[in-house]
Design a protein around this nucleic acid. Structure first.
Length: 271
DNA sequence: CCCGATTCCTGTAGGC
DNA sequence: TGCCTACAGGAATCGG
C-alpha cells in the first residue's frame, strides 16, 4: 500500500527516465479510476516535455509548460518505465508513451488511484490545497501537532492519519510510529502531553526516513519504478504481526479495529 | 467544526 | 477442488 515512502521511492526510481522526456502519446485502457481520467488529458499532455517530477503528500506531480499531471497510486497502484513495445497485462490502465521509445506504465488492480490534469498551480488544486504539512519538513514540529490536537477526542492513531493534520502517514507507518513512541493507539489526541508529542514527531520522521532508505514496504504488490519491491517490511515492529512476540518484551502483539483500520500494538510497551 | 461510518475496487485467504 | 465470504485500505464524502 503506497504511503509516503513508497510514493517517494517511486518518484526517485522513475525521475531519471521521465524528466526531459517528450510525450508522444497517451494510451488509456481504463478511464474509470477513483475519478475518471479527464478527457482533456490526452490533448493537453501530448507533445509536452516533462520538466520536473515532484511529490506532494502521496501525489506525484508531473510538471510541463502546459500544466501538470497529478497522479495518485491509491492503494494498489504502481508505475514502471518500460519499453513501449512491452505487451500490457491485466490492470495496466494507462501508458504515457515517450518519443524515446519508452513508456511510463500505470497499473492499479483495485482502481483506487487517480490521474488528473490541472493548468493552475497544482499545490492549490482542490484535492491538494487543504492538506497539512509534509511530515519530513521543518514545519512539522511537536508544537504544531500539540496545538492541533487540543480538545480533540479522536484516537491518536486516527489523528495522525488525517491528511489535514499531516500528510503521508498511512496505516503501516502510523502503527509503527506509535510503537516506537510507546504510545497506545487508542489514547485521545487531546489528552497527550507535549513531551509525548515531541517523541511522536521524532519517530514519525525517523520511521518515514528509514523506510525511504529501504525503498519502502512491500506487503503484496508494491514495486518501485524499476519493478523491485521495498525492503522495509523486514523492519516492521508491529504492523501485520498479530500474536507475534514484541521485539522488546516478547508480549504478543495485539490487533484491534480503530476507525475501520487494522491496528497493531504492544500492550506492554505502549501505554 | 468534529468524528465515525460508508464508499469505491479486486486479489487473496480462510472456511466448509 | 471449488465455491463463497470476509478482508485489505486512501481518502473523499456523508450523516449525526
Amino acid at each position: 500500500m503506497p504511503e509516503l515512502p513508497e510514493v517517494e521511492t517511486t518518484r526517485k526510481g522513475i525521475a531519471p527516465y521521465v524528466v526531459g522526456e517528450v510525450v508522444k502519446d497517451i494510451v488509456i485502457r481504463e478511464r474509470q479510476l477513483r475519478w475518471p481520467i479527464p478527457l482533456e488529458l490526452t490533448r493537453s499532455l501530448k507533445s509536452q516535455t516533462i520538466k520536473k517530477l515532484r511529490r506532494r503528500a502521496k501525489y506525484l506531480l508531473f510538471y510541463t509548460d502546459n500544466g501538470c499531471m497529478l497522479l495518485h497510486l491509491g492503494m494498489s497502484g504502481s508505475l514502471r518505465v518500460i519499453d513501449a513495445n512491452l505487451p500490457h497485462e491485466k490492470h495496466d490502465h494507462v501508458d504515457i508513451v515517450f518519443e524515446s521509445g519508452r513508456s511510463l506504465r500505470f497499473r492499479d488492480p483495485r482502481k483506487f488511484g487517480s490521474i488528473l490534469w490541472t493548468e493552475e498551480d497544482p499545490l492549490l488544486h482542490k484535492l491538494i490545497g487543504h492538506l497539512g504539512p509534509e511530515p519530513l519538513s521543518k514545519e512539522f514540529i511537536s508544537d504544531y501537532l500539540y496545538l492541533r490536537s487540543r480538545k480533540r477526542t479522536q484516537a491518536i492513531k486516527t489523528f495522525i492519519m488525517d491528511s489535514r493534520i499531516v500528510v503521508g502517514v498511512g496505516n503501516i507507518y502510523a502503527n509503527e510510529a506509535l510503537y516506537l513512541s510507546g504510545i497506545k493507539p487508542t489514547l485521545k489526541a487531546g489528552r497527550i502531553s507535549k513531551a509525548r508529542y515531541e517523541k511522536l514527531v521524532r519517530e514519525i520522521k525517523n520511521v518515514l526516513a528509514r523506510a525511504i532508505e529501504k525503498g519502502g514496504t512491500t506487503l503484496r504488490d508494491f514495486i518501485n519504478g524499476e519493478g523491485k519491491p521495498g525492503y522495509f517490511r523486514n523492519e516492521l515492529q508491529v504492523y501485520d504481526r498479530k500474536n507475534e512476540a514484541c521485539h522488546v518484551c516478547q508480549t504478543p502483539i495485539k490487533m484491534i479495529r480503530l476507525g475501520q483500520r487494522s491496528t497493531f500494538y504492544c500492550t506492554n510497551c505502549q501505554r
